[in-house]
């Protein structure tokens, strides 16, 4: 068993996989992990090569387009511990094509598909739970701290849905941001963040939403446990309806 290392980024991980497969390494005899900053770490370090990443993705897109999606979603999560599984998954996907996602009795496939599903679930959740607030200049701002790095697909979703208004989405866990000016989408990082003041209208609309939220529940059917299991408390921090409770 040979141990290989990559730089800890998503691109570095895919690049390492591409290089290992190109060199004919047997994925069952290799492990792949994040490099840590210890002095005498054992393993061969593989440098990130963006051409290799491109080449691998274009090959995979032809043979297994669904597997490409699974990999992308998987990389939105914390894929640090999944290096070896991803390596073996990609090798299998190149042989079997998209059928590979059905091979759930295999531990590596299962690990990758499960991680991809979790990330996909949170992306779907955030499409519902993200809350935009109108600022004094008329633009809208939404804040979030998701477990997975979902900002790119999430922003694309809102660029189709809320295309007539200017908005920003900020991920305060990763210090990243997306912005939409009515015609183009941009991504960037946050240097520092302070929440701007809300417009007067915003304060009134939020109050109405809280009124709606309170009265739409049937008192005879109160069920906080079910509410929490559907909408975990970690998302409440930025939910308009859960403020001031």
């Amino acid at each position: 068993m040979t141990r290989y290392l990559y730089d800890g980024t998503a691109e570095g991980l895919v690049s390492a996989i591409a290089q290992l497969l190109d060199s004919g390494t047997d994925p069952m005899l290799a492990t792949l992990a994040e490099r840590e900053d210890t002095l005498f770490e054992e393993g061969l370090f593989l440098r990130t090569d963006s051409d290799a990443v491109e080449a691998l993705f274009s090959k995979l897109k032809q043979r297994a387009p669904d597997a490409v999606n699974a990999i992308r979603y998987c990389l939105m999560g914390d894929a640090g511990g999944l290096g070896t599984s991803l390596l073996r998954y990609v090798a299998l996907a190149l042989v079997h094509g998209d059928r590979i996602n059905g091979h759930l009795t295999d531990d590596d496939v299962k690990a990758v598909v499960t991680m991809a599903r979790k990330a996909g679930r949170e992306l779907h959740r955030m499409k519902g739970l993200l809350r935009f607030e109108q600022m004094r200049d008329g633009a809208y701002l939404a804040r979030m701290e998701p477990d997975h790095d979902v900002i790119q697909p999430l922003a694309r979703h809102f660029s189709r849905r809320l295309r007539a208004q200017r908005w920003f989405i900020v991920d305060l866990r990763r210090q990243s941001a997306a912005s939409w000016d009515g015609s183009a989408l941009q991504f960037g990082t946050l240097e520092q963040f302070s929440r701007p003041e809300l417009s007067d209208e915003e304060v009134a609309v939020q109050e109405m939403w809280r009124t709606f939220f309170r009265t739409i529940a049937i008192p005879e059917r109160r069920n906080p446990k079910l509410q929490k299991s559907n909408m975990p408390a970690k998302y409440w921090k930025y939910l308009t309806e859960k403020q001031g409770e």
Partner: peptide
């Protein structure tokens, strides 16, 4: 898409 869950869990 679900946007929230009210106090009755719906």
């Amino acid at each position: 898409i679900c946007h929230s869950w009210s106090d009755d869990g719906r």
